[in-house]
């Protein structure tokens, strides 16, 4: 494939109809013939392939209206949740499609250049990184594992110690404090147990992976108030071992009696979490 596959009629020109170049991903050019079918960002030109100098690499790009992708326009659009979701899902769709028949290095949302020449030059500068990242993820995919704490059974009704003769009178305050301390102890113990489970699930999953990332768990605004997340991790896994990881992690679901943890596995994902320099812990 060559750059002539890409029609960018006004690339880099000034004026109201100027186009910018949006880059989604970089892939090897010896991958099977791939014709981008995703429409890409609304209002842009066709998604296409752009050969990078030095051979071997091509970028998945789309010409977009420069006016829609200025710093100010982007900030405004990405602050609109509906527009942000549309942009994010478009970006993800193009990258996922591009990865269907070969490894890709996905680029961050809204990786934009003022024109094709700028894109080629900037991406060429990262050639060594792209080649290394492609080698790293070839034959591998990202799998996500999350652990949630399900709503606990209704707290057992504490014995009504107020009616206990031993606690009436001057003893009542002390008994109350003891109860409060007891509840706090139980809460902490439960929290520690849950975190141990999260750590254990992570260890089990990581044993099948070549690299792992533990992200900050999602807040309860996303997961639901009664369903805090305690593990939000991603693993880079050889395709041959993916089924083992999924089975091993799922086998842990429901085995932690009394803790009501729920384990989710999703994948395979394009290895977003393992293609940027410095990301992911080697195992």
């Amino acid at each position: 494939m060559t750059a002539t596959d890409l029609s960018l009629p006004h690339a880099g020109t000034a004026g109201g109809d100027a186009t910018a170049t949006c880059v989604f991903a970089v892939r090897r050019d010896d991958a099977p013939e791939w014709l981008p079918e995703s429409p890409g960002h609304a209002g842009g030109g066709p998604v296409g392939l752009l050969a990078l100098p030095g051979g071997g690499l091509q970028a998945v790009v789309q010409p977009v209206a420069a006016a829609d992708f200025t710093e100010e326009a982007l900030r405004r659009r990405l602050s609109d949740p509906v527009e942000l979701e549309r942009c994010a899902r478009t970006h993800h769709a193009v990258i996922t499609a591009a990865a269907a028949d070969g490894p890709v290095v996905p680029l961050p949302l809204a990786t934009l250049f003022t024109g094709v020449d700028r894109a080629v030059a900037a991406l060429a500068d990262q050639r060594a990184h792209f080649l290394a990242a492609l080698d790293r993820v070839t034959g591998r995919a990202e799998w996500a594992v999350k652990v949630h704490v399900e709503p606990s059974e209704p707290a057992r009704a504490a014995p009504d110690e107020g009616t206990d003769p031993a606690t009436v009178g001057t003893g009542a305050g002390a008994a109350y404090l003891a109860r409060v301390r007891g509840r706090e102890r139980d809460r902490r113990a439960r929290q520690e147990a849950v975190l141990r489970v999260a750590g254990h699930v992570h260890e089990v999953a990581a044993a099948f992976a070549v690299a792992a990332v533990r992200r900050t768990p999602h807040s309860t605004e996303i997961t639901g108030k009664d369903r805090p997340q305690v593990l939000n991790a991603a693993y880079l896994v050889d395709d041959a071992r993916a089924a083992e990881l999924v089975a091993a992690v799922r086998a842990l679901d429901g085995t932690h009696t009394g803790l009501d943890v729920h384990i989710e596995v999703s994948g395979p994902w394009v290895p977003y979490s393992f293609t940027r320099s410095g990301e992911g812990t080697g195992l």
Partner: peptide, 27 residues
């Protein structure tokens, strides 16, 4: 890749495509 764009959790997508910022690569 099975997490089809329409079913993948938006939060999962965003933390992957925004992580470490938008600033790195482009103009």
């Amino acid at each position: 890749y099975s997490p089809t764009p329409s079913t993948a959790n938006l939060a999962d997508i965003l933390e992957r495509i925004l992580d470490k910022g938008i600033v790195i690569a482009g103009d």
